[in-house]
């Protein structure tokens, strides 16, 4: 068991997605894109439906998001985000466009460093951390996990969630705080 664990930590699954993404970025590899599509498009569609989109709208937008992934591949930086995180931010922005029809001001881009390719050690560390976070999220107590998902996927503010669930706003806030504390604790292990 210990050995198996060590192996996954040496080459986490997230690193596989990084290679797929780099094949798209560097070689416009359509086979790699197809693989990425089969894995992520159905998840993006699920995310959009949970945000209140109809099946048809979610289907169209999921395809749009994947087209944007292809177009923006040169902006993917594996030392800053996992592939899932990067795709999440694109899908989220598309959802704001589509459902809220308003702008989302973005932070100023960091000036580019002198090296175009990030350090492999940084990439590996970031991808390992993102796998740990993934594992920690699955381990959260159900009530906390559901609430975190509502926050990210539900297109609702914390007070809207309070109204919808009938839970006091204070309970929602403290449950979210507990969830974040737990995730932070797991990442420190």
């Amino acid at each position: 068991m210990a050995l198996a664990h060590k192996t996954t930590m040496e080459r986490p699954l997230d690193m596989e997605w990084v290679s797929v993404m780099l094949a798209i970025r560097d070689r416009q590899d359509t086979a790699a894109f197809a693989r990425l599509f089969r894995h992520f498009a159905p998840r993006i569609k699920a995310f959009l439906i949970k945000s209140g989109a109809s099946d048809t709208l979610a289907e169209d937008c999921a395809q749009d998001v994947m087209t944007t992934v292809w177009q923006k591949a040169h902006m993917f930086d594996p030392s800053r985000a996992s592939v899932a995180t990067w795709i999440f931010t694109i899908a989220r922005n598309r959802r704001i466009d589509m459902l809220r029809k308003e702008r989302r001001p973005e932070p100023e881009e960091l000036p580019w460093g002198p090296e175009p390719e990030p350090d492999q050690a940084d990439v590996l560390m970031l991808q390992q951390e993102s796998e740990k976070l993934q594992a920690a999220l699955i381990q959260l107590p159900e009530k906390q996990r559901i609430l975190v998902e509502r926050c990210y996927f539900g297109d609702m503010s914390h007070s809207e969630i309070a109204t919808q669930t009938g839970l006091p706003l204070g309970t929602i806030k403290s449950r979210l705080r507990l969830a974040l504390d737990k995730l932070r604790h797991e990442l420190k292990q």
Binding site: F40, A41, P42, R43, I44, K45, A46, F47, I49, K50, D55, A58, E59, A62, Q63, A81, S82, A84, T85, W86, I87, F88, T89, A91, R92, E129, S130, L133, Q134, L137, I138, V148, E149, Y152, F153, L183
Partner: peptide, 17 residues
């Protein structure tokens, strides 16, 4: 954002056409 990514990875898929 990484929490959002982890949720996306973990969500049940809805098949496309």
């Amino acid at each position: 954002d990484a929490v959002g990514g982890a949720l996306l990875e973990d969500t049940a898929e809805v098949e496309l056409a």
